[in-house]
Design a binder for these strands. Structure first.
Length: 461
RNA sequence: GCCCCCAUCGUCUAGAGGUCCAGGACGCCGGGCUCUCAUCCCGGAAACAGGGGUUCGAGUCCCCUUGGGGGCGCCA
């Protein structure tokens, strides 16, 4: 029989939890939240958090899925104690337990159906069952609603219920924290614990996370996977924080909580029993908060990385320039995946024209002439720094009896392609005179001014 | 079909019988700042699913209805 040594601890920790996923694809947020709660509970109580990979469904389990699982856990900082236990390698222990049940008369061999092989079936005691769930309170089941069930298949392989319980016993798990789709199984598992002469653990069943329609997640609901958030440039600490708050709250008004605070505050008694929806809007907000709270150095490193991933860096960029762009964009970012779109015009000359912005900002009298004047102005300002550019633009507007905003908007759209972004004058200074002049020429060349004379363009709010 | 679970603003939640004409956050709307967007600041609209009980008093306890979900495998 294989022995399990799940941790390097002294084995006397009061609390032992485990995360026991079956690696069948990408890691779903509902699943990872189960891992997070197990992790937090163990850390809060100074116990151990173990990982068991339930890879017994060999048809669906893949190495790639295991890798994705490990990566997701590492990304979120869910460190586990000891080595992962692979359930598929625990076969002997499972079958040995089945033999013991057989010998004790708690299980029996039988054939189910014509031509079927012999299976081992667990004899469900004819008693009403109940247990105290740490999230839901007392749960009961009438004996009539519980039937005997297969624990070893005709091909000799153990079934989930058996494997799960035997492994939890051998790993010394004290608190089984899992999805509420296992509530019904718990009565069977409890009977198995008793028949195997083991003290049952405490159980806590967590509600599921549903999509923004309030429906269970299906494969079609993108962005429900941990890897997806990582790819889009979310910060792991923000995703962690958000997910913890989905079903649990500290009891006061705090929302942004550090990992240490969460460990200190988390407990199962404040976990809500009802399902909760994934709210991408709130996640984005929270991620933005985390981005703004990042130490400057960390932020710049991540920003640069996002630029690289977006393919916006050629390698020849001035480091100061890149950092300055990062500074200008920081307050606007909600996740780093937005860098690609928000920073494009700082690194490419062929940025696209946002025609909605063009129509809105170029709908002024003599837009073409006004923009040409901007070009002349830009050619003259010296030195080409924000304060001087601003002074000259405002002065020029005043001479013409125009609002400075007219020039400002024309310039902004011309040099960036869009009407949203950092302060214009800082932007111009950063881009530098040569590029600004070239971009104005490009706008003069490519944009359809004639169609946008005042009054001829349709009213567009 | 049978069994079980869940139910406060659009969303996440606070609320452990009176202090709740229900608080916070995201989002939304309005305002301030400003060249735009964002950040930031101020203000606003927005909920106890419905019906019965229990109680002097119910968002809070009980029952029913409705709605949602889960389970009834030689899947996990």
């Amino acid at each position: 029989m294989q022995t399990i040594s799940p941790g390097s601890g002294d084995g006397r920790s009061p609390v032992v939890t485990r995360f026991a996923p079956s690696p069948t694809g990408q890691v779903h947020i509902g699943n990872i939240r189960v891992a997070i709660y197990n992790w937090l509970f163990a850390r809060h109580h100074g116990g151990r958090f173990l990982l068991r990979i339930e890879d017994t469904d060999r048809a669906r389990s893949t190495d790639e899925a295991v890798r994705a699982l490990l990566e997701a856990m590492e990304w979120l900082g869910l460190d586990y104690d000891g080595e992962p236990v692979f359930q598929s390698r625990r076969r002997e222990a499972h079958l040995e337990a089945a033999d013991r049940l057989l010998a004790a008369g708690a299980a029996y061999r039988t054939r189910k159906g014509e031509g079927a092989g012999e299976v081992i079936v667990f004899r469900m005691p004819p008693e009403n069952m109940e247990f105290e769930d740490l999230v839901r309170g007392r749960l009961k089941k009438a004996a009539d609603d519980l039937q005997d069930f297969v624990i070893v298949r005709s091909d000799g392989t153990p079934v989930f219920h058996l494997a799960n319980v035997v492994d939890d016993i051998d790993m010394g798990v004290t608190h089984v924290i899992r999805g509420d789709d296992h509530i019904e199984n718990t009565f069977r598992h409890l009977a198995l614990y008793r028949a195997l002469g083991a003290e049952p653990p405490f159980f806590a069943h967590l509600p599921m996370i549903v999509n923004d329609q309030g429906k269970p997640y299906s494969k079609r609901d993108g962005a429900a996977y941990v890897g997806e958030f990582r790819r889009q440039g979310y910060l792991p600490e923000a995703v962690f924080n958000y997910l913890v708050l989905l079903g649990w709250s500290p009891g006061d008004d705090r929302e942004i909580l550090s990992r240490d605070e969460l460990i200190r505050l988390f407990d199962l008694d404040r976990v809500r029993p009802s399902a909760s929806r994934m709210d991408l809007q709130k996640l984005m907000w929270m991620n933005g908060e985390y981005i703004r709270a990042l130490p400057e150095e960390d932020y710049q490193r991540r920003f640069r990385q996002a630029l690289e991933e977006a393919g916006l860096l050629s390698g020849a960029e001035d480091e100061q320039y890149v950092q300055r762009v990062g500074e200008l964009l920081r307050a606007r970012l909600r996740y780093f995946g937005q860098v690609k779109e928000m920073a494009v015009y700082f690194f490419r000359e062929d940025y696209a024209w946002d025609m909605r912005a063009v129509e809105k900002r170029f709908r002024v009298e003599n837009a073409r002439d006004r923009l040409r004047e901007c070009g002349e102005l830009m050619a003259q300002v010296d030195p080409f720094v924000a304060a001087d550019i601003e002074r000259e633009v405002r002065a020029a507007a005043e001479r013409r009896g125009l609002k400075a905003a007219v020039y400002i908007h024309l310039l902004r759209v011309a040099v960036s392609g869009t009407d949203r972004g950092p302060g214009l004058f800082e932007m111009l200074e950063l881009l530098g005179r040569d590029r600004v002049l070239a971009r104005i020429q490009r706008a003069l060349r490519e944009l359809p001014f004639s169609d946008l004379q005042k009054g001829t363009a349709g009213q567009q709010p």
